[in-house]
């Protein structure tokens, strides 16, 4: 159970894992996520289902290595098993034909974005995707994204690939040029905040997929709570997607940093143990 059957590095810090989980593969929809736990003493972390193969009974996860748990997960190899995996969790993306979709993926956000653009494209929409990252190495899934987009714009902070500039510059270029009916933005919270501000200027409906801290993922704890339109919502059961113009991103950014110091220490300790042994 939960065996890893494929593993592929997109970059030094981003890895794709294909894991056997037939029930999840069968029932997942775009926008859903899983919670995984590595080892008896591991923590529960949420990861978006980037793709699934019902026949093989597998799901794809694309993980950015940022701390202890993502590192532990990335250290597993083909044939190893993930201790716990539960899902598919969260509300699925509401897919319909609206016209032209402007999708924006920041860094590893390209992975959760992929099944969503795939579904919008299948529903008959025109899909324009902006992929953005700090540098060329961090642009992932470009080929897959191209397959499901009518047009792909690449932006890098340092200009090492595509156009030099931030994701918002790429988005604005498209918005100036043609009518956009819906925008979908997924990436680091700070990127989503600015992307949402950009589309707001033009009154374009925008959804963001939020990556808050979570524990259970079933609505039981409230760790994932955020403010949307002045009301408290739980990302794991009410989301993860919300109207980006109504999300209090500043509060979310603060809440995301709740364990920053503890996590940094834990990561140092984890890495130094690894290198010693």
């Amino acid at each position: 159970m939960n065996t890893i059957i494929d593993k592929q590095y997109f970059s030094e810090k981003v890895v794709k894992l294909t894991i056997l989980a037939p029930d999840i593969a069968k029932n997942r929809k775009p926008g859903n996520f899983v919670i995984i736990k590595i080892g008896e003493k591991g923590e529960r972390i949420p990861l978006t289902i980037a793709g699934a193969d019902i026949e093989k009974g597998s799901v794809d996860l694309v993980v950015q290595i940022v701390g202890v748990s993502s590192h532990k997960l990335s250290a597993l190899n083909i044939g190893d098993a993930v201790t716990d995996i539960v899902g598919p969790l969260g509300q699925a993306t509401h897919i319909e034909k609206v016209g032209t979709i402007l999708a924006a993926g920041g860094g590893v956000g390209a992975a959760p974005l992929l099944p969503i653009i795939e579904a919008f494209k299948k529903a008959g929409n025109k899909v324009i995707t902006v992929l953005a990252a700090r540098n060329k190495d961090l642009i992932i899934l470009e080929d897959e994204v191209r397959k499901h987009s009518d047009e792909v714009i690449i932006m890098t902070d340092d200009g090492s690939y595509g156009t030099k500039g931030l994701v918002t510059a790429g988005m604005e270029e498209v918005i100036q040029r043609e009518k956009i009916d819906l925008s979908v933005v997924i990436g680091p919270a700070i990127m989503m905040k600015y992307a949402a501000m950009t589309t707001k200027k033009y009154n374009i409906n925008t959804i963001a997929s939020l990556n808050t801290i979570m524990v259970d993922g079933t609505g039981m704890c409230g760790a994932c709570r955020i403010t949307v339109d002045g009301k408290t919502k739980f990302v794991c059961i009410d989301g993860p997607e919300f109207d980006a113009h109504k999300v209090d991103f500043d509060e979310m950014l603060l809440r995301l940093s709740a364990y920053k110091d503890m996590e940094a220490k834990a990561y140092e300790k984890h890495i130094s143990c690894k290198t010693q042994s």
Binding site: V215, C221, G222, A223, I226, L254, A258
Partner: peptide, 25 residues
């Protein structure tokens, strides 16, 4: 399972937990 909050200002500050979250952790 669903914890209630009081919906008062500042309740989403860091280190304010539902009892479920605190005890579950």
């Amino acid at each position: 399972g669903l914890p209630r909050f009081m919906d008062i200002p500042g309740e989403n500050s860091i280190n304010i937990f539902s009892s479920n979250e605190y005890l579950t952790r």
